[in-house]
Structures are given as structure tokens and as C-alpha cells.
Amino acid sequence: MSQSKVYLRGFIQVPMDRIEAVRAALPEHISLTRAEPGCLSFDVFEDAEIPGRFNVSEVFENRAAFDAHQARTKQSPWAKATRNIPRSYDISTD
């Protein structure tokens, strides 16, 4: 298995009628993700210029850690709050 770091960068474009639910779920999502084994950095923040856009930047130490993160979040309050909201992500490795 590759030991390359996994980088995810992009954004989630939240409809204004769902923004409060996303904001409410975000602190726990960030806290739980940063505590995961293999999470090197994790930031999600509202764009200062584009309403409803949350910029995302993640770095995991390897594909296994990234995949474990993806699996954990599938049933999380964050997944529920952001279900079916468009995302634009670029995932790469080094």
C-alpha cells in the first residue's frame, strides 16, 4: 500500500437555507477529524467573499488514513448536515 500523503483541497457550496445546520455541525466535524490517526491537517472555513462556500483543506499521512476518515464521516452528523450538497474537491498524493 502506498505511503504517499493524501491531499484534498476544494470547497462545498452550501445552499443558504442549510447554512445554519452546516455551521452547527462543523466544529464537531473538525474536532473529530483532527483527532483521527493519520490526520496531519484539516481545515474547513467559510469563504470571506463567496456566500455559502466553505473552503476545505485536508492532509492525511497515507491512503489508509484518508479512507478511514471517509468511512467514519459517512454516518456522522456532518454527513447528515451536508447530504446532497455539491462539492468540488481535488484529491492528490505526493
Score class of each variant (00 low, 15 high):
Met1Pro: 12
Ser2Gly: 12
Ser2Thr: 11
Gln3Leu: 14
Gln3Arg: 14
Gln3Asp: 12
Gln3Met: 14
Ser4Gly: 12
Ser4Ala: 07
Ser4Lys: 14
Val6Leu: 12
Tyr7Ala: 07
Tyr7Ile: 03
Leu8Cys: 08
Leu8Phe: 02
Leu8Met: 14
Leu8Gln: 05
Arg9Ser: 14
Arg9His: 07
Arg9Lys: 05
Gly10His: 02
Gly10Ala: 12
Phe11Pro: 15
Ile12Thr: 12
Gln13Pro: 12
Gln13Thr: 05
Val14Leu: 05
Pro15Ser: 00
Pro15Tyr: 00
Met16Asn: 09
Met16Glu: 08
Asp17Val: 05
Asp17Ala: 13
Asp17Thr: 02
Arg18Trp: 00
Ile19Thr: 08
Glu20Gln: 09
Glu20Lys: 10
Glu20Thr: 11
Glu20Ile: 09
Ala21Asp: 09
Arg23Asp: 03
Arg23Phe: 04
Ala25Tyr: 02
Leu26Trp: 03
Leu26Gly: 04
Pro27Trp: 15
Pro27Leu: 14
Glu28Met: 12
Ile30Trp: 06
Ile30Cys: 07
Ser31Asn: 10
Ser31Lys: 15
Thr33Gly: 00
Thr33Trp: 00
Arg34Val: 04
Arg34Met: 02
Arg34Tyr: 05
Glu36Met: 13
Pro37Asp: 13
Gly38Trp: 10
Cys39Gly: 09
Leu40Ser: 09
Leu40Ala: 06
Ser41Cys: 12
Phe42Asn: 09
Phe42Glu: 07
Asp43Met: 15
Asp43Ala: 11
Asp43Lys: 09
Phe45Arg: 09
Glu46Thr: 10
Glu46Met: 10
Glu46Gly: 04
Asp47Thr: 06
Ala48Thr: 10
Ile50Val: 04
Pro51Gly: 03
Pro51Trp: 05
Pro51Thr: 07
Gly52Ala: 15
Gly52Lys: 15
Phe54Leu: 03
Asn55Val: 06
Asn55Ala: 11
Asn55Phe: 13
Val56Asn: 02
Val56His: 06
Ser57Glu: 15
Ser57Asn: 10
Glu58Gln: 11
Glu58Thr: 02
Val59Arg: 03
Val59Glu: 04
Val59Ser: 13
Phe60Trp: 07
Phe60Gly: 14
Glu61His: 14
Glu61Leu: 10
Glu61Ser: 14
Asn62Ala: 13
Arg63Ser: 04
Ala64Lys: 13
Ala64Val: 01
Ala64Tyr: 01
Ala65Gly: 05
Phe66Met: 13
Phe66Gly: 11
Phe66Trp: 11
Asp67Val: 01
Gln70Val: 09
Thr73Asp: 03
Lys74Leu: 04
Lys74Thr: 04
Lys74Ala: 11
Gln75Leu: 07
Ser76Arg: 13
Ser76His: 01
Trp78Arg: 06
Ala79Cys: 00
Ala79Gly: 11
Lys80Pro: 01
Thr82His: 05
Thr82Lys: 10
Thr82Ile: 14
Thr82Glu: 01
Thr82Gly: 10
Arg83Gly: 08
Arg83Tyr: 14
Asn84Met: 09
Asn84Thr: 06
Ile85Gly: 13
Pro86Phe: 02
Arg87Leu: 07
Ser88Glu: 15
Tyr89Pro: 02
Asp90Phe: 08
Ser92Met: 08
Ser92Glu: 15
Asp94Ala: 13
